[in-house]
Amino acid sequence: MKAFAQSLQNVKAYICPVDFYRSELPAMPPPRGSGWRDGGLCPFHSDKQTGSFRVNLETGAFLCFSCGSKGGDIIAFIQQRDGLSFPDALQKLIDEWGI
């Protein structure tokens, strides 16, 4: 359990939400400032208009006003988008980001 907690802390410390969302959301406009920003097209439904999907560049939280998808961090984003459990989403981030 201690190793799992350490992995979680490493992911949250190593992966900056700005870098994560720029990598995962190619349609996201260039981020300016911090806090809640336009995330581009929502990856959780067949979105055709920008503006309803928002990401928080400080915490990694996300929210879609159209489909209702939401989460508190980048791990929750991976869980929902890829249909993974929390441990599997954490491991995917560790593997993909080389942590």
Rank of each mutant, 00 (worst) to 15 (best):
S46C: 13
A13H: 14
N56F: 04
I99E: 15
P26M: 02
G40M: 04
H45I: 01
D95M: 15
C42D: 03
L57Y: 00
Q6K: 14
M1D: 13
F62D: 01
D95A: 04
C67G: 00
G39N: 00
I99C: 09
P87T: 12
S7Y: 11
Y14I: 13
F86D: 15
Q80S: 00
N56W: 04
K48I: 03
G33H: 04
R32W: 10
E96K: 13
G83L: 04
S23H: 12
N56I: 14
Q80D: 06
A76K: 07
A5H: 07
L41G: 06
E58L: 05
T59I: 07
E24W: 06
R54W: 00
G71K: 00
R32Q: 11
G51T: 04
E24T: 09
Y21W: 15
G60F: 06
D73W: 09
K48P: 03
L93N: 08
Q49W: 06
G68A: 03
R32A: 12
E24F: 14
D19C: 04
V11Y: 10
L84N: 01
W36T: 00
G60C: 05
D38S: 03
N10D: 15
T59L: 05
K92M: 12
Q6P: 04
D95K: 09
W97S: 07
C42M: 05
E24N: 02
A3K: 15
C64A: 02
W97M: 15
I78L: 03
D82R: 06
I75T: 06
L93V: 07
R22E: 13
S85K: 12
S69W: 02
R37K: 09
L41M: 01
Q91C: 13
G51D: 07
S46T: 10
C67N: 00
F86P: 04
I99Y: 13
M28K: 05
Y14D: 10
Q9K: 14
D38K: 02
P87E: 07
P31H: 12
M1I: 12
C42N: 01
G39A: 03
M28C: 10
D82H: 09
W97C: 11
F62G: 03
L57R: 01
I74E: 01
Q6S: 10
P87C: 13
A5M: 08
K48G: 06
K92P: 03
P29L: 13
F4H: 14
T50P: 06
A61G: 06
